[in-house]
């Protein structure tokens, strides 16, 4: 059994990444099915806005985990609903400062917020965080991810957000430091706006901005800690034996390395093996051979698993378990 797929310290998180159409969903469904069969309480979540996890299992899924078999639960995140919920949450938070909204027309800005770049990534990250927060309910959580580009950006977010939070905390500290200095000489400083008077917070514990910054930092750090811990997270890349998926996997490896996320296995899916020579697909076979050669030399230190192209589509729990068994048995 491949150790990096089994729970070691609490629950195990497995991200299955890869270019569109290489078989991520099938592979992740197969891994989840095989792990569940071996007695691990497994949840598989599709983060892909274009869901097809339900199609692989041949059942309709929703954002609530649905029991498919003993120990096997599956859900599909409804991205649109998530983004709406996320914005609603933000909007409620914003309701407090409405005196100011009219001044800078934030209200209008808010309407377009749902179209603002990056909102999908933030919502996805928020969704991952919520699932990880309740991670102890499961032994293993398998994430079927959107195509590489979006996934990598989501996985990069915790690190980037931490940098932002740290910088802002630094500036905030300087502000509070100055406020304390002034208060020492001048006494408590008051700020009057539109007839309302309030005392300027000067201690870190009483400053709502600082408190919010620290809370945010903690939340993000939690996700970052989980996804960078080799005892908790593994990433599996799925690719086809073709040049473009190969390049993409290579780039993904670089990015994951930069963010410190453990990358453990490359699954080369749909490898064609023929007994006899078929001249019509000789070009494809040549390309395949070349890629397979290069993979071994390029991905040193990472396990590589070749899955042949099956004579029929791997659908249904039986097939998935067989396929998953190939992945989780070393």
């Amino acid at each position: 059994m491949r150790e990096f797929l089994l729970p070691k310290k609490g629950f195990r998180t497995i991200f299955v990444i890869g270019k569109g159409g290489v078989g991520k969903t099938t592979t992740s469904a197969a891994i989840a099915t095989a792990l569940a069969r071996r007695g691990y309480r497994t949840l598989i979540v599709s983060l892909d806005p274009a869901h097809n996890l339900g199609d692989v299992f041949m059942v309709a899924l929703s954002d609530k985990p649905k029991k498919l078999a003993e120990n096997l639960y599956a859900s599909e995140l409804d991205m649109e609903k998530l983004i709406k919920a996320y914005l609603k949450h933000l909007e409620n938070n914003l309701k407090n400062m409405y005196r100011y909204l009219t001044v800078i027309n934030l209200e209008k800005y808010f309407e377009v917020l749902s179209f603002s770049p990056g909102i999908e990534e933030y919502a996805t990250l928020e969704a991952i965080r919520n699932i990880l927060l309740e991670g102890d309910e499961w032994d293993i959580i398998v994430f079927d991810t959107p195509p590489t580009g979006l996934t990598l950006r989501v996985l990069a977010l915790p690190k980037i957000s931490l940098i932002w939070a740290d910088k802002l905390i630094e500036i905030r500290r300087k502000i509070l430091e100055r406020r304390r200095m002034i208060a020492k000489i001048q006494g408590e400083q008051k700020f009057v706006i539109e007839g309302q008077e309030f005392v300027l917070p000067k201690e870190e514990e009483e400053d709502p901005v600082m408190k919010e910054l620290k809370k945010y930092r903690e939340e993000i750090e939690f996700v970052d800690k989980v996804i960078t811990d080799p005892n908790k997270t593994s990433v599996i890349a799925v690719m086809n034996p073709e040049m473009l998926p190969f390049y993409e996997t290579e780039r993904a490896r670089e990015s994951l390395k930069k963010f410190g996320i453990p990358f453990n296995l490359v699954v080369v899916n749909k490898v064609i093996t023929l007994e006899r020579d078929v001249p019509e697909i000789r070009v494809k076979l040549d390309a395949q051979r070349k890629v397979l050669e290069e993979i071994t030399s390029k991905f040193g230190g990472i396990e590589i698993l070749k899955i042949p192209m099956f004579p029929e589509e791997p659908r249904g729990l039986g097939w998935l378990e067989k396929l998953g068994g190939m992945v989780i048995e070393g």
Partner: peptide, 12 residues
């Protein structure tokens, strides 16, 4: 910075 962070800090 991350939209979430901005909107969360805004009220304060």
């Amino acid at each position: 910075p991350p939209t979430t962070l901005v909107v969360r800090l805004m009220p304060h």
